[in-house]
Design a protein around this nucleic acid. Structure first.
Lengths: 316, 316
DNA sequence: TGCAAGATGCGTCGATTGATGCGTCGATTT
DNA sequence: AAATCGACGCATCAATCGACGCATCTTGCA
């Protein structure tokens, strides 16, 4: 095979970790180049890289580094089981620390995802998200996996003004995963009766995309306008499509202009239901007639209810 | 050209290096005259000179000599990074050949797409785009179908300050379609060596997503940071992952700060290739060493050229 | 709920390694 | 005779080494 032995730096870059981390893995876990003279430079052969890749994959799936290294050291081939089963085998192991993104008690899966994000490991991120959606559904994936990581990134970002590239790359993967869910559903016969839109100036559309994916998963078709929708454009869209329900998302107070909601309520062909989603909205300032779902699950439930009632009305 | 074989000394002088260095390059990197009898004098043909010139240029740009030599050796018939032109990759990428005004099949399709957009008909939009990508590939879909529609929407949008919701919804559909292309490819074994990023403050990422999809279509993996990436974050990502090529997209002049490019070029372990994409960049203001692809097809071709660039390992 | 203990990633520092360009030398080619 | 060859060695400098410590996360427990 190609005796293309990589230097320590090149290997670290490949994995998305620091050179010191690589050295630490060698010292703490015995996970280093197969042959290495102390004091000399490390050269990672392709066999070593395979081992490190196991390490990468397992830690991205939430296995603690110590445990992952144990597997990587033993198994030289792809005889390594998935992260879930490995995790199941080791309970009560301490984990976490370093420059990790805080995910609190959200669980190993979230921690692994956070680690993959720090390494800018697009592949691992996307795989994890996709698998979680397939297993647990969009809502649980959002609440238990993605949101903790996003919040963690946000906190870190606010504290140290770093990690912007991590946040962007991660958001992109999330967005793509949700888009895949939406695209994966067959086109419904009936035109969508639910309109999703961000508030004016509102840039964060990820939660709304989560809602869109959740709706698609539940078989509810919708129309998604996306971020930064001016009121006039929103009213225009409503006038043109006459949705039964409208969800307006506001992430920060600044974008939560209650006048937008009032405009919807007083619009010709006003939607049956107006939902104000997101932490931006203040309960007191909402005009009467606006519903404020507390979380994603409730929003989905409301939307499903709307769909069902419409179906019944159409059937009778 | 056949008669003009330079001696070792002349060649060395031409390159500005010592004669011994030339000999060293031959021994250490195998970068010598195409035919040479051991013990006899070396005669460098023009083809050899081309190879040596690549070596010189790359090392002058800060690329490690071992890596540069690998490139020079491999790129005897291919063209090189930093060179004026690179032949379009043949496999998987369709060339943007007939650069005529969209007629024939693209004309009606674009019109239909625009109409679907005005209708806010998500399903029809997505279907049309997906079909076009499957049939004509990403590059042609972008150039002949999507871009005309986007430009059309943009023009009217600017004139009437309306249609914002149309633009958003359409952009989402395009984005989702591109994401599907990227997600549809199997995960490559090697980590991505190409980094895509918007310039600082730059909000338009759709063209970059088109590039990402085109790369995925061509089997080239990449990392996509997305819109509004500050320089520090970009440099951080580069330092962490050491990509072989970086594409910076700027849509409008305001975001086309050449200092960003300079920062990339002077960064430690700078990428082999720095591409400045988008209409924001002015050719005159670009620092030397930055390549400015004129269209999507050329950008893809350039990226393909560095696809399997070896990592910057220590020389053997 | 709050806190101590363990786990982990990585920045820093002085010393060392290793890649690279090139000068030198005796022999050989042109 | 001039230029070059192959071999050897040397100076230089970026990359890396080993050790240490720090900041921060997670977990068990009060």
């Amino acid at each position: 095979m190609a005796d293309e032995a990589l230097s320590a730096g090149a290997t670290a870059r490949r994995l998305g970790v620091a050179v010191t981390t690589l050295r630490t893995w060698h010292q703490r876990y015995g996970l280093g180049p197969s042959q290495h003279v102390p004091g000399h430079h490390r050269r990672y052969t392709s066999a070593d890289l395979v081992r490190l890749d196991i390490m990468r994959r397992l830690t991205a799936e939430g296995v603690s580094p110590a445990e992952a290294a144990r597997w990587a050291r033993r198994a030289s081939d792809d005889t390594v089981p998935g992260g879930a089963s490995v995790r199941a085998g080791s309970r009560g192991v301490r984990d976490g620390g370093g420059t990790a993104i805080p995910v609190g008690r959200a669980g190993p899966a979230a921690r692994g995802l956070a680690r993959a994000a720090m390494r800018l490991d697009t592949v691992a991120i996307s795989e994890t998200i996709t698998r979680s959606i397939a297993t647990d559904g969009v809502v649980r994936t959002w609440d238990l996996l993605l949101r903790p990581v996003l919040v963690g990134i946000g906190e870190r970002h606010a504290a140290t003004a770093a990690l912007i590239e991590v946040e962007h790359l991660f958001s992109r993967c999330v967005s793509a995963a949700f888009a895949a869910v939406v695209a994966g559903r067959p086109a419904p016969a009936a035109p969508p009766r639910i309109l999703l839109s961000c508030a004016d100036e509102e840039q964060h559309s990820l939660p709304l995309e989560a809602l869109a994916a959740a709706l698609a998963e539940a078989g509810v078709s919708h129309r998604m306008l996306g971020a930064r929708v001016p009121v006039s454009a929103l009213l225009d869209a409503i006038g043109r499509t006459g949705p039964a329900a409208v969800v307006i998302w506001s992430h920060i107070r600044f974008t939560a202009d209650a006048a937008q909601l009032t405009a919807l309520l007083t619009a010709p062909r006003r939607p049956l239901l107006v939902l104000a989603g997101g932490p931006g909205w203040q309960a007191e300032t909402l005009p009467a007639g606006v519903i404020r779902p507390v979380d994603l699950a409730e929003a989905v439930a409301l939307a499903v209810a709307v769909r069902d009632s419409l179906d019944q009305a159409a059937a009778s």
